[in-house]
Amino acid sequence: MRRILFALLVSFGLVTHAMADEAEPIRDASASSTSASSVPLAASEPAARMHRVSALLVRRFGLARAKAEQIAEAVMASASKYSLPPALVLSIISIESRFKENARGAHGATGLMQVVPAAHRRLVTNVDLTQPAANIEAGSAILHGYIESAQGDVTTALRAYGGSTAYARKVSVHARDFELNAAASDTGTASAASGAR
């Protein structure tokens, strides 16, 4: 499991660090007289990543493009904020709700990440868990808390989130699948770009 997490962090975790690193130059550019040409370059890579994730959601889960873009943006933002691999968040959503924002489950579990309001009252008070961004934010915060409580042990954190070792294994397999599909998208994009030259 640690090797899978390491691979996820290498391929997707760098996304979160790259996004954090790129966010600062964008703020500086708007606040100072930095050349305008540096802003589009810094902003284009996170946008390209979100586009690849949303295209994957359209292709694999049949989401409408606007909904896929909304979910991809929320996943990338929460993954960056909580230092989670986006593939891990996507994996949980795919297992918990199959990307259906109005999904309902046992014990009042609600939304994309099947957040249980009764178990997380302080975190979700006055939050509409059927809204993708709010649900992904709450679910990511919960997962991050479990990872911290488990001193970085993602398997233990996933067991706490989903209730079993089998769940943790399933999330890991799905996360690896998301990682491989994203890598294939990157390769396909690179091949198409080189073929266009």
Score class of each variant (00 low, 15 high):
residue 20 A to Q: 11
residue 54 S to E: 11
residue 47 A to M: 14
residue 163 G to V: 08
residue 191 S to V: 12
residue 110 T to Q: 08
residue 121 R to H: 07
residue 83 S to W: 04
residue 126 N to T: 02
residue 176 R to I: 01
residue 153 D to H: 01
residue 181 N to D: 13
residue 78 S to M: 10
residue 92 I to Y: 00
residue 148 E to P: 02
residue 17 H to I: 13
residue 112 L to F: 10
residue 36 A to Q: 10
residue 105 G to H: 11
residue 59 R to D: 06
residue 162 G to F: 06
residue 139 G to A: 06
residue 34 T to D: 13
residue 87 A to R: 01
residue 160 A to G: 03
residue 124 V to M: 10
residue 98 R to I: 02
residue 54 S to P: 12
residue 176 R to Q: 10
residue 5 L to Y: 08
residue 116 V to Y: 04
residue 23 A to K: 06
residue 172 S to V: 00
residue 132 P to S: 04
residue 149 S to V: 05
residue 53 V to G: 03
residue 14 L to F: 13
residue 105 G to A: 06
residue 90 L to P: 09
residue 44 S to R: 15
residue 183 A to K: 10
residue 56 L to D: 15
residue 15 V to S: 10
residue 71 I to H: 12
residue 161 Y to G: 03
residue 2 R to L: 05
residue 89 V to A: 07
residue 116 V to T: 14
residue 119 A to M: 08
residue 159 R to W: 00
residue 76 M to F: 04
residue 81 K to H: 11
residue 31 A to I: 08
residue 32 S to F: 11
residue 158 L to V: 04
residue 85 P to V: 00
residue 166 A to C: 03
residue 120 H to M: 06
residue 133 A to M: 09
residue 69 E to S: 09
residue 87 A to K: 01
residue 76 M to P: 00
residue 78 S to R: 12
residue 100 K to R: 15
residue 85 P to M: 02
residue 162 G to K: 07
residue 68 A to P: 07
residue 170 K to I: 00
residue 12 F to T: 06
residue 81 K to L: 13
residue 132 P to F: 00
residue 18 A to Q: 10
residue 156 T to M: 04
residue 135 N to L: 07
residue 82 Y to A: 02
residue 96 E to C: 11
residue 13 G to P: 07
residue 116 V to C: 03
residue 123 L to N: 04
residue 138 A to L: 09
residue 51 H to K: 15
residue 15 V to I: 14
residue 97 S to F: 01
residue 24 E to A: 12
residue 194 S to V: 09
residue 110 T to C: 05
residue 182 A to R: 12
residue 146 Y to M: 12
residue 173 V to G: 00
residue 42 A to N: 14
residue 33 S to N: 12
residue 126 N to C: 07
residue 114 Q to S: 11
residue 86 P to R: 07
residue 126 N to Q: 11
residue 175 A to D: 01
residue 87 A to L: 02
residue 86 P to K: 09
residue 176 R to D: 05
residue 20 A to D: 12
residue 45 E to S: 13
residue 141 A to M: 11
residue 186 D to H: 10
residue 193 A to V: 12
residue 36 A to R: 14
residue 39 V to Q: 08
residue 170 K to F: 00
residue 44 S to Y: 06
residue 56 L to M: 11
residue 143 L to A: 09
residue 7 A to E: 14
residue 197 R to Q: 11
residue 114 Q to M: 13
residue 65 R to P: 04
residue 53 V to S: 03
residue 32 S to A: 04
residue 186 D to F: 02
residue 44 S to P: 01
